[in-house]
Design a protein around this nucleic acid. Structure first.
Length: 890
DNA sequence: GCTATCACG
DNA sequence: ACGTACGTGATAGCA
C-alpha cells in the first residue's frame, strides 16, 4: 500500500514555536502584532520542506492544559512559566499561516503534540512509509527507527541536527528506547519531571550503559555506592513515574488517516497574501512570491487610480503647460545618499489624472524654463517626499525650490519616528494603501544597481509620485488627530528649509591646518607603532581586534575581563583596567586615539572639503533620531573631538569663510536638567536653576548631605554621573558601571537623590506608568515616541523601554527647544538684515560665522534668542563664546 | 554586510 | 534572577 517515495514530516508545533520565540529578537508588524515566533517557525518549515520534499506534512499542537499525564501526576509541567502574551498571540497567526501553506494541523484534547506525532510515526512505519519528526525536544529521540529520523533544532531554529538510531548510539551509547530511561533518571526541570535528585546527564548515561533500563538500575541498586545509591533508593517511585511521564503515547485515537495529511504544495497567491499580512518581506522574496505579488498589486493600483504616464521627452515640453495650474505633487528622485553629490534621475509632477515625467538631465534644456519657474514659484504648492533633500539637489542645478507645502516622509517620521522603513513603498504598506514596487525591485541594489529603460523608469517614477499624492491626506489627517499639527507645520517643515540653507552655506575648513596636524599625528602614530612592536617583541596588525586580542590575552597572558560575541573585548574600558599589568596597554590606548583622529578626522574631513570653495557641507537628517534630535552625515559634524586636547586641535581648522569674520558658538547650559526641572516640577531642582547654582555641586550637597564648601572634586564628579544617570533613565547597575562602584553604593546614591528631589522620582514613576497605559511618551511640543516593549514580559526589553520612557521626553524636549531657537535665529537674522550666518547645530550648541561689525550684536542676540525659545518654569541659559576658529570659540 | 570600536551631545 | 546606562555616524577588519 505505501508508496516507497512517501515521506511524512511531523512537526511538534508547540515546541518549535517556543524555540523560535526565545531565539529571535522581538519583531512586530506595523499594526503591533508580535511575529517573531511565527517568522522563526516559518524559516524552519521552509527549510524542512525544501530539504525533505515531503509528500505528507502534519503540524501537531498541544491542546488545552490538562493531559492524561496530569491524571497520575498533578504537578506535571507545574514549574513552567505561563506563556507570555507576546507568544500566545502568535498561535492564531501561525495556524492561519499553516492554512495558507495548505498544511494539515491537528490537536486533541487530553494529548500533547508528541503523542500525536508518536502515533502518526508508528502508523507510517506500519504502512512502510518513512517519517521525519521535527522538534526542539530531545524526548522525541525515543521515536527514532530505521524508518523514522528525528530532527532536533539547535541554535534557535535555524539549524537542525538529524538523529537516527545509529547516531543516537554514537552520541549517547543508547538505543532510542533508552532515551525514556535517560529522562526517567535525569528528570526534566522544564516539564517538572523529578527524576532522581543528583543525577544529571552524565550519571544517568553511566548508569544506563551499565544497567540498560531504569528497572534494571533499581534491581541492582545494591551494587551502586555512596550518596548516589541513597538517592536512587529513596526515589525509586520518582524514577519509575518519571520514565512513565517521558514515554510518548502512541495509541492516540486519531480520526484521520495518513492520506488526510498529504501535502501537494502551497498556492503562491494565498501564501503571498499571508506573508504580506505578516509583513514577511524577506521570505516573500526568497520564495519569489514578492515580485509576482507586488507587480500584480502595483498594476492594480495603477489601474485603480487611473492615472496616465506622460513622458515629456516624447510628448514634448508643451504638455506641461496644462499640468502646472493643477499640479499636486512633485517627486525628485536621485541616485546616491549624499544630496550634495547625488545625481538627479527625474522630476515627476502629478496633476489630475496624469503623471508627467521629466528626465533630470533635461532640466538644463532651454525649454525647461517653465518647469524651473514652477519649481521656484512660491505660489505653486508642492507636496513631495524628502523635500529637504530635493531642495539640495535642485540647488546644485541652480534652482531654488519654493512653495513646499507637505513632505510625506517628514510627516511619517513625526507620526512614528522609530519606524525603520522610510521608503514610499514602506509608507504605503504602513498606511495600508495600494503598494508600488520598491526601489530595489526596479533599480536593483549594491553592485547590481542600474536604471531601467525610459519606459519602465517613467512608470516607476510616476507610481512613486502618485503614491505621494495618495499618502498626503492620510498623513495630514493623522497629524491633526494626534495633535501634532503645529509641530509639523510650524516647526519641522519650515526647519527643513533652514537646515538646507545651513548645508548649502557650508563651513570653511583649512585643509593645510588639517594636513599639518595630520603629519604630526602620523609621526606619533609611527612612534607608537614601533614602541608597541618592541614591547610585544613582534609585529602584528594593531588595528585588528582579533590579532590584538590574541597578543594581549594569549601571548602576554593578560586577564580576560570582558568578551564580545566574537572573542575578547579590547575596548577602552577593558584596556584602562589592564593598564597596570603591562606597558603595552598604555601604548595601545594611545595608538587607538591617534588612529581614530587620523582616519576619521584628518583623512575623513579632508576628503569632504570641496576643492573649489574650501568648504565642508554636511547633511542634517531630520527623520532619523527617535527622540527628535537631528543627525549629521557626510561628514558628521556633530562629533568633532573636544574632550581630549589632542583631538580638540581639529577644531582649529574650522574657520570663518571670509577674512576678519569670527566663529561664534553658543551652547545651552544644562538644557536637559533644566527640562527635567520643568517637566517634573521638582521644587528643589527648579530652585537650584532659579538661583543659577552649579547643578552638579548642588546634587553632591544633597546626595552626600554636606555643605557647598565641603563638596570636593570627586564628590562633584560622582554627582555629575548621577545627573547623567537620571537623564538616561536611571538604573543602579548603569551608575555602578559608570562610577566603578558597587551596585549597592549606586543604589544608595540614587535613593539619596530621590529623597532630595522627590518630584523627579514622581516624574520617573509617572512617565513609565503613562507609557504603559498609552503605549507612547511625548515631549513638550507633542513629539511622540511609541514604546511597545514597555508591556513586554521579557525583563530586559521592558527595562530598556522604561529607561527610554524616562529619557525621551527630556532629550526630545531639548531637541524641540533648540529647533525652535534655530527657527527664531533664522528669522532674526533675516529681519535685522544681518550678514551673520548660522552654520552648525550640535544638539545643544549653535555655531555661526559673524562679520566683525556684528560681533557685539550677535553676542547679545544669540543667547537672547536661544534663552527665550520656549518659556519654561526655569530659566534657559545659553553661553556664548567666539574666536578666530571653532577651537578658540570655547 | 556585519562587528567592534570610538568620536560627540 | 534577569544584564544596560540615552541618542547618533564613521572607520577598519573580516567574512
Amino acid at each position: 500500500m505505501g508508496n516507497d517515495k512517501d515521506k511524512l514530516v511531523l512537526i511538534d508545533g508547540n515546541s518549535i514555536i517556543n524555540r523560535a520565540f526565545y531565539a529571535l529578537p522581538p519583531l512586530t508588524s506595523s499594526n503591533g502584532l508580535h511575529t517573531n515566533a511565527v517568522l522563526g517557525f516559518t524559516t524552519m518549515l521552509l527549510k524542512v520542506l525544501e530539504e525533505e520534499k515531503p509528500s505528507h506534512v502534519l503540524v501537531a499542537f498541544d491542546a488545552g492544559k490538562v493531559t492524561f499525564r496530569h491524571e497520575g501526576y498533578s504537578e506535571y509541567k507545574g514549574g513552567r512559566q505561563k506563556t507570555p502574551p507576546e507568544l500566545s498571540e502568535q498561535f492564531p497567526l501561525l495556524k492561519e499561516l499553516l492554512q495558507a501553506f495548505s498544511i494539515s494541523q491537528f490537536e486533541l484534547a487530553g494529548y500533547e503534540a508528541d503523542d500525536i506525532i508518536g502515533t502518526m510515526a508508528k502508523l507510517a512505519a506500519e504502512q512502510g512509509k518513512s517519517a521525519i519528526v521535527v522538534s526542539g525536544d530531545k524526548d522525541m529521540l525515543q521515536l527514532a527507527t530505521d524508518e523514522v529520523s528525528v530532527l532536533i533544532t539547535r541554535k534557535g531554529v535555524s539549524e537542525v541536527e538529524r538523529f537516527t538510531p545509529a547516531s543516537i548510539g554514537e552520541k549517547y551509547g543508547l538505543t532510542p528506547a533508552q532515551i525514556i530511561d535517560l529522562k526517567g533518571l535525569m528528570g526534566d526541570a522544564s516539564d517538572n519531571i523529578p527524576g532522581v535528585p543528583g543525577v544529571g546527564e552524565k550519571t544517568a548515561l553511566k548508569l544506563l550503559h551499565e544497567y540498560g533500563t531504569v528497572e534494571n538500575v533499581l534491581q541492582h541498586v545494591e551494587e551502586i555506592k555512596g550518596k548516589l545509591r541513597e538517592n536512587i533508593e529513596t526515589n525509586q517511585d520518582n524514577a519509575r513515574m518519571s520514565k512513565q511521564l517521558a514515554t510518548i503515547y502512541r495509541e492516540v485515537p486519531l480520526e484521520f488517516s495518513i492520506e488526510d495529511v498529504a501535502w501537494k504544495g502551497y498556492e503562491s497567491a494565498t501564501l503571498a497574501a499571508a506573508f504580506r499580512k505578516l509583513e514577511f518581506k524577506n521570505l516573500s522574496e526568497r520564495l519569489n512570491l514578492g515580485a509576482a505579488d507586488e507587480a500584480m498589486e502595483a498594476e492594480s493600483a495603477e489601474t485603480a487610480s487611473h492615472y496616465e504616464v506622460v513622458r515629456v521627452e516624447e510628448a514634448g515640453w508643451g504638455v506641461l503647460t496644462e499640468a502646472f495650474p493643477v499640479a499636486e505633487a512633485v517627486l525628485v528622485d536621485s541616485v546616491g545618499d549624499n544630496p550634495h553629490q547625488s545625481e538627479g534621475i527625474g522630476i515627476t509632477i502629478v496633476a489630475g489624472a496624469k503623471c508627467y515625467v521629466v528626465p533630470y538631465a533635461l532640466l538644463s534644456d532651454k525649454e525647461a524654463k517653465p518647469l524651473v519657474a514652477w519649481l521656484e514659484d512660491a505660489g505653486a504648492p508642492k507636496i513631495s517626499y524628502d523635500l529637504h533633500r530635493v531642495e539640495l539637489i535642485l540647488a546644485r542645478s541652480g534652482i531654488t525650490l519654493r512653495g513646499q507645502s507637505f513632505d510625506v516622509q517628514l510627516a511619517a517620521y513625526l507620526l512614528d519616528p522609530t519606524e525603520a522603513d522610510p521608503s514610499l513603498h514602506g509608507l504605503l504598506q504602513r498606511y495600508k494603501l495600494a503598494p508600488i514596487l520598491p526601489d530595489e525591485a526596479v533599480y536593483g541594489k549594491g553592485a547590481k544597481f542600474r536604471l531601467p529603460s525610459g519606459e519602465e523608469l517613467a512608470k516607476h517614477l510616476a507610481a512613486k509620485a502618485e503614491a505621494v499624492r495618495r499618502l498626503q491626506p492620510h498623513l495630514a489627517e493623522q497629524l491633526e488627530e494626534l495633535g501634532m499639527h503645529r509641530l509639523y507645520y510650524e516647526l519641522e517643515q519650515p526647519l527643513s528649509i533652514v537646515l538646507a540653507g545651513m548645508e548649502k552655506q557650508g563651513i570653511t575648513v583649512n585643509a593645510d591646518a588639517l594636513r599639518e596636524l595630520g603629519a604630526e599625528f602620523q609621526r606619533r602614530l609611527e612612534e607608537t607603532t614601533e614602541a608597541i612592536y618592541a614591547s610585544a617583541g613582534f609585529e602584528f596588525n594593531i588595528g585588528s581586534t582579533r590579532q590584538l586580542g590574541e597578543v594581549l590575552f594569549e601571548r602576554l597572558g593578560l586577564p580576560v575581563l570582558k568578551k564580545t560575541k566574537t572573542g575578547y573585548s579590547t575596548d577602552a574600558e577593558v584596556l584602562e583596567k589592564l593598564e597596570p599589568h603591562h606597558e603595552i596597554v598604555r601604548l595601545i590606548l594611545h595608538y587607538r586615539q591617534l588612529s581614530k583622529l587620523q582616519s576619521t578626522y584628518i583623512e575623513g574631513l579632508l576628503k569632504e572639503i570641496r576643492p573649489e570653495t574650501g568648504k565642508i557641507h554636511t547633511f542634517y537628517r531630520q527623520t532619523i533620531a527617535a527622540t527628535g534630535r537631528l543627525s549629521s552625515q557626510f561628514p558628521n559634524l556633530q562629533n568633532i573631538p573636544i574632550r581630549m586636547e589632542e583631538g580638540r586641535q581639529i577644531r582649529k581648522a574650522f574657520v570663518p569663510s571670509e577674512p576678519d569674520w569670527t566663529i561664534l558658538a553658543a551652547d545651552y547650559s544644562q538644557i536637559e536638567l533644566r527640562v527635567l526641572a520643568h517637566i517634573s516640577g521638582d521644587d528643589g531642582l527648579k530652585e537650584a536653576f532659579l538661583k543659577e547654582m552649579d547643578i552638579h555641586t548642588k546634587t553632591a550637597m544633597d546626595v552626600f548631605g554636606v555643605q557647598a564648601d565641603q563638596v570636593d572634586a570627586n564628590m562633584r564628579r560622582q554627582a555629575k554621573a548621577v545627573n547623567f544617570g537620571i537623564v538616561y533613565g536611571i538604573s543602579d547597575w548603569g551608575l555602578s558601571q559608570n562610577l566603578n562602584i558597587t551596585r549597592g553604593e549606586a543604589a544608595e546614591f540614587i535613593e539619596q537623590y530621590f529623597l532630595a528631589f522627590p518630584g523627579v522620582r514622581r516624574y520617573m514613576t509617572d512617565i513609565v506608568e503613562r507609557a504603559r497605559n498609552d503605549g507612547y511618551v511625548t515631549t513638550l511640543l507633542e513629539r511622540r515616541r511609541y514604546l511597545p516593549e514597555i508591556r513586554h514580559s521579557n525583563f530586559n526589553l521592558r527595562s530598556f523601554a522604561e529607561r527610554t520612557a524616562m529619557n525621551t521626553p527630556i532629550q526630545g524636549t531639548a531637541a524641540d527647544i533648540i529647533k525652535l531657537a534655530m527657527m527664531h535665529m533664522n528669522e532674526a537674522l533675516i529681519e535685522r538684515e544681518l550678514r551673520s550666518r548660522m552654520l552648525l547645530q550640535v544638539h545643544d550648541e549653535l555655531v555661526f560665522e559673524v562679520p566683525a561689525d556684528e560681533v557685539e550684536l550677535m553676542k547679545k542676540l544669540v543667547p537672547e534668542v536661544m534663552g527665550s525659545a520656549l518659556k519654561l518654569d526655569v530659566p534657559l541659559l545659553a553661553e556664548v563664546s567666539f574666536g578666530s576658529n571653532w577651537y578658540e570659540a570655547k
